[in-house]
Design a protein around this nucleic acid. Structure first.
Lengths: 348, 348
DNA sequence: CTGTTAGCGCATTCAC
DNA sequence: GTGAATGCGCTAACAG
């Protein structure tokens, strides 16, 4: 008989405590305007009954739900789970809950997730848009009555603030770094090219190569280990084999790395490797892999902070707010110099 | 003027459509008992106004919130984020949302998270208890009116079903595997020993060693790279150096691996290594690392499935249900044979 | 088929 | 300091 009872309500508590519902309500909400004696008494009854205020009722009274929604491609992806962790921490600090849904980069699933979150009346949303260009997404966001922040990828042509790393600059810097090392034929392995971030990184690579008067060579065929092996083998046996590889995403970096190991191509002696995006064991593998590191947690944190800033700003909405609603926050990336690009002596 | 309006309500939609609220309600909920004509008309108005039913009001009517809560130590931890991903998928399939909170293995924070989730009236809970023994946790769960499933770690002395991998058997099997390889002095590096899972794995290690008539040597000092280096160096320079290391968790495995590389100890020739818990690059590092692999996604999936089973079971509560409410689901682990234990020739 | 109405649990007037 | 009454948005009886 311990479980499965209807949860107690204010009036039940009130009756049990011999007071009015108002008093109970006051006790829950800080206990102002209640005599210390009644306060303690009621509190005791509340504890005894295991009473918890029903959020739904509060919400119905027009209050915030104290929930925010996060729509990301995948929860298991380290990048987004770190984002989520950071966002959750901020939410917690703001007395809110984080609801996470995975879109798997499918625009349709994404819209559905958003609709459900909206119908749950989340106070705000953080979204990593599956497709930055989607009209349907823009429409939906436009008519939304809660603030939205985009992460990792912006929403095209919209008023949605975005928090992302400077993919262009990071990639340009990475490419320039390889150029500075003296490599002459630097190819770029993109992986899938549908994502905004990848496009930006491609731009960055091109920019650096052009500025150096070197020909840009992009290979978009790498999707798994097999395709990586094929691509790299083709290059090596081709007329003008590269001496450095710049990979635009985690998995591509790892595939390339494994292929080079497999083919016994010395890194970086015969082939340098530099990847976009850090990953856990990049420093443990031999040789350790140099990467462009994104401020992952910061992206999640800043996005959530921005969101709550808007949320709280709206509350005290007497004046048109300090008009500081940034359209776009671009966070700097860092080059982590390890061995694979030729920076650290292969020894350590 | 497009944003920030109060969301439309049923009655607003009803007025705009020139019908009663019930009709609108019916349209939202599948459109039974509504003439096709009205149905379409109302649907059109709904779309035009961007109306979304307010979940809070539904909940207040006594319906499920269609949310489940997940309390895990960390969202960024690959193990738990994979669990979360799987649980979210199941939730989605059951038309529900997943709310994730991180306890950071702090019992206090865990209780707080649970209380908040309860007050949000989640339909059910999945928890990875920070402390399996916690009285406070047991109390809280005991009086709960919603089903709970524990994952990764059970709740002691309670009726809470748990889904976890067979840590004991996995560790015993791993140890036996090292024994079978012919290693004579197998030490176990535990990492922190407060967790239930680690205890089970220690038991498994001891059981195998005792069964083989070999002395169990546990080292609980490894907490980071430094302590790993110290511990392993001490062992190597000691009187009776080990020839195999069994590590009980991810990070410990990696620390041990890095130390062995650093000290130029050939793996597995001079020292074999076998770890509990797989990780992404375990097969990419050289030598690749043999591990005991847990069915991570399965844990999350099964837990969520169990939860919804109870949830739905309660709905059609005419009969005492098939009485099949399992107390504990123990999932098998697998030994992934790679190079570090001596299984695969160092070449590939 | 469709509309009217009551009430879910709570915070919030407004009296006392 | 305290309590009784009201209504948030919605659905489920119950008329019509």
């Amino acid at each position: 008989m311990k479980k499965r009872g209807t949860p107690p309500t204010v009036s039940e508590v009130a009756r049990a405590a011999g007071v009015g519902t108002t008093t109970v309500s006051r006790v829950i909400n800080g206990g102002d305007r209640v005599s210390p004696k009644t306060l303690e008494h009621v509190q005791r009854v509340i504890d005894a009954m295991g009473y918890r205020p029903n959020q739904a009722a509060r919400v119905l009274k027009g209050h915030r739900t104290k929930t925010i929604g996060l729509v990301i491609p995948s929860i298991a992806d380290p990048f987004f789970s770190s984002c989520a962790e950071a966002a959750q921490a901020v939410a917690q600090a703001n007395d809110s809950l984080l609801i996470v849904t995975a879109s798997h980069n499918d625009p349709h699933s994404e819209l559905e997730n958003l609709n459900i979150l909206i119908s749950h009346r989340v106070d705000g949303l953080i979204v990593a848009p599956a497709n930055s260009q989607s009209e349907a997404l823009q429409d939906l966001l436009r008519r939304l009555s809660v603030p939205v922040i985009a992460v990792d990828r912006p929403v095209a042509d919209s008023l949605v603030p975005a928090v992302l790393s400077d993919n262009f600059k990071g990639a340009r810097f990475a490419t320039q770094h390889l150029i500075d090392h003296g490599y002459k034929r630097i190819v770029c392995l993109t992986g899938e090219t549908t994502l905004f971030t990848i496009h930006e990184r491609m731009r960055g690579y091109r920019a650096a190569m052009e500025a150096a008067g070197m020909p840009a060579t992009l290979n978009t065929s790498v999707k798994d280990y097999r395709s990586a092996e094929y691509a790299i083998q083709s290059m090596l046996s081709g007329p003008n084999p590269p001496d450095a590889i710049f990979t635009l995403k985690n998995s591509t970096t790892i595939y390339a790395f494994e292929v080079l190991l497999k083919l016994n191509v010395p890194i970086p002696k015969a082939m340098a490797l530099l990847g976009f995006d850090d990953f856990e064991l990049a420093s443990t593998v031999r040789p350790s892999i140099s990467v462009i590191q994104q401020p992952v947690e910061e992206i999640g944190r800043v996005a959530a902070e921005l969101l709550f800033e808007q949320l709280l700003g709206k509350r005290g909405a007497h004046a048109p707010q300090k008009a500081k609603r940034p359209r776009m926050v671009t966070l700097e990336t860092r080059l982590i110099q390890r061995s694979s690009c030729g920076c650290t002596p292969a020894g350590s």
